[in-house]
Simulated scan of single mutants.
Amino acid sequence: MTAAASASIAAAKAVWDDIASTRSVSDDHLSILHFLFGKNFERATRIVDQGGVRKLCGTPSGRSLFLVIGESRRKEEYICVPENCCTCYSFFYDIVSRGEELCCKHQLAARLAEAAGAHSEVTVSDERLALLLSSI
């Protein structure tokens, strides 16, 4: 990872933490995140605004992942662990293969929704989480 990418990730983490501490998103937060992530962040905000983020919390472990709705007409749902991976095509193409982006719009939507408390939350069994993860 380049020094610039590391600095961007650190700056974004500070913004996510600030949003999470107040459960509100300021214009300054939006400006910084847009500067760091560009069009992917714009798309992520649309997903959050449309209620497209669900957090699945496993019981009894407390482990979690997100299901994030895509923007296509099919409204596909992607499995997303915001800090690590997403099952969308863009994650594998733009991030893993080409290294052109730091994260996809679904990861950003999940991070924003979690920090702002703008997601629905569903409790499922750990077995259900394992089944979802095994389908990746």
Results as ranks from 00 to 15, higher is better:
Y93C: 05
I47M: 02
A115G: 06
Y93D: 14
V124F: 06
A12M: 08
S97A: 15
K13C: 07
A4I: 13
G117S: 04
H34G: 14
T45W: 01
M1W: 06
K105S: 09
C80L: 02
E100C: 03
K105E: 12
S8V: 01
R46N: 13
C104K: 01
L30G: 02
S90H: 13
L132W: 03
G99D: 10
F66N: 10
T87M: 08
K13P: 01
R73D: 15
E127L: 07
S26Q: 12
F91E: 04
L67P: 00
L132S: 05
R63L: 09
Q50G: 12
I9C: 14
E71I: 10
Y78P: 02
C103D: 01
G99H: 07
F66Q: 05
D18H: 09
T87N: 06
S8P: 00
M1T: 09
E101M: 11
Y78G: 04
D18T: 08
R98E: 13
I19E: 00
L67V: 07
Y93S: 10
A4H: 11
E100F: 11
L56V: 04
K55F: 01
G70C: 04
E101T: 07
S120V: 11
D49N: 12
K75C: 10
E127N: 03
S21R: 12
N84A: 15
L56F: 10
E71C: 07
H106V: 06
D94N: 14
C88A: 06
A12G: 09
N84W: 11
A10N: 11
P60H: 05
S26H: 11
L30Y: 01
V96T: 09
Y93Q: 11
A44F: 08
E121N: 05
L129Q: 03
D49C: 04
E121M: 12
C86P: 06
S8G: 08
H34D: 14
T45L: 08
W16L: 09
V81I: 15
G51M: 08
K105Y: 02
E100I: 09
N40D: 15
D126C: 03
D17P: 03
C57D: 06
C103I: 03
S97G: 00
L33W: 03
H119P: 00
D28G: 07
K13Y: 00
V53G: 03
H119A: 09
E114S: 15
L131M: 09
T2C: 11
V96Y: 04
T59Y: 07
S125G: 12
R46L: 13
R74I: 06
P82N: 08
D49S: 13
L102E: 04
V48P: 04
R23Q: 13
R111W: 10
A5D: 15
R54C: 11
G58H: 01
K75W: 00
